[in-house]
């Protein structure tokens, strides 16, 4: 391993701004949820303020880092630290989804069959909801909610194709940046971002369809719950990923990055591929199976 002098970044006001942003977001989000059934909007106001401060922080922090990077302050070691940090962050995201996939798995394999009397649970069924029958997707809940399942063909399939395509276009863009082919890079990165937003648009359409035509809502039992939480958090991650790629695109247009140094691009790209992999799991376990 090549050893070199250390680079230690200077003090920075941005983290504390970020901490204040988090405080506002947490308090705001908490109050917003608590005030759902009231006309009180103070929570929403605090939450929005927090988001604004967070955006301000991200903008300032990133700009600061970009300037430092342009000055050539960062050593290869710093670059490695950034990359490893990003990989571990993605691993933590994997574990976040793991919790929800775990819930889906548990509901399908254990709790729903048990409520239907499987294993040694005949009495559970007899005593609690004798007319309940176990099935997946769970369209008739023990409490009597009725809903319809979201089929995998149609919008979800189209969305799968879109996301997979975007992974390919992003890969092409990545190859282009390594060959310093700016034209190709800009074109393929733009297509990727575009596909990301198309995906999100279709996802919204799917939700509307689910709510209006299928009566599949957040309240329709464990099938709808796992459906919305998994697709919802995935959608949130697509939004973040698309925004990150969008920022990278702006920087590309401005002429940032070189063949060797494009950590921001790489980080956003890893994130995007991760989001895609989550979708594939989601498509298989939430929609198809």
């Amino acid at each position: 391993m090549q050893s070199q002098s250390y680079y230690v970044p200077a003090q920075s006001p941005w983290p504390i701004v970020g901490a204040i942003a988090m405080f506002f977001i947490a308090v705001g989000a908490g109050l917003t949820v608590m005030q759902l059934e009231t006309a009180d909007l103070s929570g929403v106001v605090i939450l929005s303020l927090g988001v604004l401060i967070l955006l301000y922080m991200l903008f300032g922090w990133f700009r600061h880092v970009i300037q430092e990077s342009d000055k050539g302050l960062y050593s290869l070691q710093m670059d490695r630290s950034f990359k490893q940090g990003m990989s571990w962050f993605i691993f933590s995201e994997v574990m976040f989804f793991f919790a929800f996939f775990g819930a889906l798995f548990y509901a399908r394999v254990f709790s729903v069959p048990w409520l239907g009397g499987a294993s040694n649970n005949q009495m559970t069924n007899e005593v609690l909801w004798p007319s309940f029958e176990s099935a997946w997707p769970l369209l008739n809940t023990p409490a009597g909610e009725v809903t319809q399942a979201m089929p995998w063909y149609g919008l979800p399939l189209i969305n799968t194709v879109i996301l997979l395509t975007s992974s390919v276009t992003l890969h092409v863009a990545h190859k282009a940046i390594e060959k310093n082919n700016r034209m190709q890079l800009t074109a393929f990165l733009s297509v990727t971002v575009l596909l990301g937003f198309v995906f999100l648009g279709l996802q919204v359409e799917e939700y509307i369809h689910a709510y209006e035509a299928l009566n599949l809502t957040l309240q329709s039992g464990i099938y709808g719950n796992t459906f919305y939480l998994l697709t919802g958090f995935h959608g949130m991650h697509v939004t973040i990923g698309a925004l990150l790629l969008g920022i990278v695109l702006i920087r590309v247009v401005k002429g940032h990055f070189t063949e060797q140094k494009h950590f921001a691009f790489q980080a956003a790209a890893w994130y995007w591929h991760f989001v895609d992999v989550v979708w594939v799991c989601l498509f298989v376990f939430v929609y198809v199976m």
């Binding site: 759902l36 809940t141 039992g221 709808g224 719950n225 939480l229």
Partner: peptide, 14 residues
Amino acid sequence: YFGTSFFDAAGGGD
């Protein structure tokens, strides 16, 4: 707060 039933048997959760 949102009426899901991950941990509520009435909705198929546990």
